[in-house]
Every structure is written in C-alpha cells, then in structure tokens.
Design a protein around this nucleic acid. Sequence first.
DNA 1: AAACAGATCTACT
DNA 2: GTAGATCTGTTTT
Length: 200
Amino acid sequence: VSALADALSAPALEVAPRLLGAHLTANGVTVRLTEVEAYEGADDPASHAFRGRTPRNDVMFGPAGALYVYFTYGMHYCANVVCGPEGRASAVLLRAGEVVDGLEEARARRGFRPDHDLARGPAKLCQALGLTLADNGAVLDGDEVALELPERSIAGEAMARGPRVGIREAADRPWRFWVAGERTVSVYRPAKAPRPQNRL
DNA sequence: AAACAGATCTACT
DNA sequence: GTAGATCTGTTTT
C-alpha cells in the first residue's frame, strides 16, 4: 500500500508528533497542522473507542489512513486521522493549523476573522476545510482529502508537548503536541467538572 | 421512543 | 479569564 498508510500504521502516540507540519487539503483549502492530540483505543479512557465499537466510532477500528469525523455540541465537527496498528482503534485529533492555501475560501467559511484564528481549534479547522460527517471514513489518498507529511519532522525545541484539552478522563497524559510559538495553536482549556457519581 | 452527553465556540467582562 | 449556549447525533431502553 502507500507510503502514507504505512507511516500512519504506528500507534497514535507515535504518529501524532510526526503530523506536525503536515499539509491537509480538502475542498480547496490547505492547512499546515500546528497542533494535534493522540488518542489510543482500549487503553485510553478519553478515547471514543474506549467503550468498544459502535456505529459512530466504527472508522477508528478500520485501517490507518482514513478520516474519523465526529459531531459534537449540536453544531461542531472534529476530525481525526486514523492510525494503526491493525486492530487497534487509535487516532490523532487535528486540533489546529495554519491556512497556507485557499485563504479566501477559508475566510469565507469562517466569517472573516483574523487569519491565525481561521483554524485555531478542532471545530474551526473542520469548518475552514469544509469537513463534515459526510467526510467520515474518507481515505486520505488525495481524491477528496489529501494528507502530505512534512519532509522533516518538527522536533527538538520546535515541538512542545502537554496535556490534552477538554477531557476529564486521563487528563494527565501529555499526549498533545504543538509547534512551539505558533499563534495558530488553540488555547488550553481544562476539562469541565468531574463526572457525578454513578447512580444506583 | 427517550435520554444523554459533548476531544467546543463565541461572547462577554 | 470565564460562563453558558446549543441541539443534534448517539446510545440505551
């Protein structure tokens, strides 16, 4: 299969930092990824796949190299790159990016905000790229959505790392990666109040 | 058929 | 920096 699918066949925790600097193209807009988060499957209480396979998270259980898009808060979409290895439902959430092509299109979709805010946040990124549930399961082969890995990985001082945003479970795992000093990186938000005790 | 829950965003101070 | 809207898709009975 393709070199891309091969590179994505590793666990999400390994793939995530390598996606920094990658270019994602969809619907006439290209972003350079500046912030991502790794979600492992059964081992990760914060993952949608933690409680097993359902119609919603089905794509995560499939082969690496597909797009997992989910819907949340009644109005937002967020996109992940499905990783491997086979049989493991791991994925990388695309949290933010810098629009490097299709600026006009992105501005129009986002309502003419400052450019660094066009794709600052997972739902904003999807909106800028025009991604919706219709793109769930799309393969990143270039037909509708294309992913191009960077020639050189972001590494060393250029890469920062910390806890993931907005989750209540496993909030201590430093599985969020971003390009240091980037204005397009979304602001950190701690999770909401802990879950109430289970009822009887 | 009903209840749930939300990997967020915008607005506002 | 913080509050709260928001309302559909998803899951469970």
